[in-house]
Amino acid sequence: MPTNKPSLKGKLPTELKVMERLALVEQFLAKLKVDFEAAGFRRNRLVNDGIADGLNLVSNAVELLAEESYEDADRICRVAWIRAHFARAIFDAEMTEHFLGEGVFLELDDGGTTDWRTFASEELAELQEEIVNLRKQIKDRSAKRGKK
């Protein structure tokens, strides 16, 4: 597992510092990608997306560095690290299950945060289905009562 080194609070990031941090994140993601592809037993979407999004964020941060927006680049770099860290943690958890040989995974998703509109729409459809079911139950009971 990765470790987090405490940093000094309130210091403005310099270009070199951000670049070093970006290089660390990129290397961390590269290692994770190699492990993930080598594992091959299944492709967890959270891990897969974590790697892809992390690498995209690194590229975005480099563009921000070119625009001399060091603080923005540093913030994006932090996000890339958090995403990478989570992806690694989930991957390691799945490896445990894989080694145990049970193959029953506790599935997790991002709860609609990255594609919240689709998630919200699906959730609304399911809730609507519950209301339809309730109406059906009411109708059935009314019909039974009518027969009596």
């Binding site: 080194k5 405490p6 940093s7 941090r21 660390l24 690290w81």
Partner: peptide
Amino acid sequence: NATTFAIEQ
């Protein structure tokens, strides 16, 4: 040191 990343305490 590829696994150390400074974060604000």
